[in-house]
């Protein structure tokens, strides 16, 4: 038998030592997505406005965020703005991930809203609804349903992207793995533990989104 330079029995031994870091990863992701959803909805609606005073800022935000790396955005918020505001690492990570995802989620919402048949809006207006009522009661509910699959995708990306918070010293999973790897000299084993954590979390998220998708399908049954 070949003698491997790794000790994979370390994986179960050290696995529980990553709970706290995993919790941080989940927190960054959860609150980052929350910020992203709010920003995304507002920006997505602004982007659809015909008024250039409203849609131009939305377009500029989406353009700037999608055109630059998240890592750079995190560094700007945490290191770059230090003379202006001193943001703690966790809030910085959450804001960074939130602002970043907001741009993508805005485009998801915009696409979903535009995909709702225009007859829906016309039917709502012809009943005497205002534009706001038509949007809130008729178009958005249908658009939200259609955005669930792409949103699930985006949430998984966000979860994995939260690892970039390691670059601004948030002790989430990846940073924890590198620190543990250095101190135990078992780098691959520690990185693999983190890989397992990510796989578990993304799988649960996938399952969750699938459930939501199914539940929203009640009105789609044909005969």
């Amino acid at each position: 038998m070949i003698d491997l330079p790794w000790d994979f029995t370390a994986i179960p031994r050290f696995f529980p030592g990553f709970y706290a870091a995993a919790l941080l990863t989940l927190q960054i992701t959860f609150f980052g997505i929350l910020v992203g959803l709010i920003l995304g909805l507002v920006t997505g609606l602004m982007r659809l406005s015909k008024n250039p005073l409203i849609n131009t800022p939305a377009k500029a935000y989406i353009w700037a965020i999608r055109g630059t790396p998240l890592l750079l955005q995190l560094m700007i918020i945490y290191y770059g703005l230090i003379d202006l505001v001193n943001i703690e690492r966790m809030p910085a990570a959450i804001i960074g991930l939130g602002v970043h995802n907001g741009a993508y989620i805005a485009e998801i919402f915009r696409g979903a809203i535009q995909s709702v048949d225009r007859g829906q809006r016309e039917a709502a207006l012809s009943l005497g609804m205002t534009h706001v009522q038509a949007m809130r009661r008729i178009i958005l509910p249908q658009a939200f349903k259609r955005s669930v699959p792409p949103l699930g995708n985006q949430f998984i990306i966000a979860l994995k992207d939260s690892s970039l918070a390691s670059a601004i010293a948030v002790r989430e999973l990846l940073l924890r793995a590198r620190q543990m790897g250095s101190s135990t000299l078992m780098m691959l084993e520690m990185l693999m533990i983190v890989g397992i954590y990510y796989l578990i979390m993304t799988s649960v998220l996938n399952l969750l989104m699938g459930r939501i998708e199914k539940r929203l399908q009640v009105s789609d049954y044909q005969d």
């Binding site: 048949d117 829906q120 709502a124 012809s126 509910p141 249908q142 009105s219």
Partner: peptide, 18 residues
């Protein structure tokens, strides 16, 4: 518009409502 009812060729029922 509330005083003028409209029926469309393609019905345009709200699919998310019973």
């Amino acid at each position: 518009r509330a005083d003028v009812g409209m029926v469309f060729q393609h019905f345009n029922l709200f699919p998310h409502r019973t």
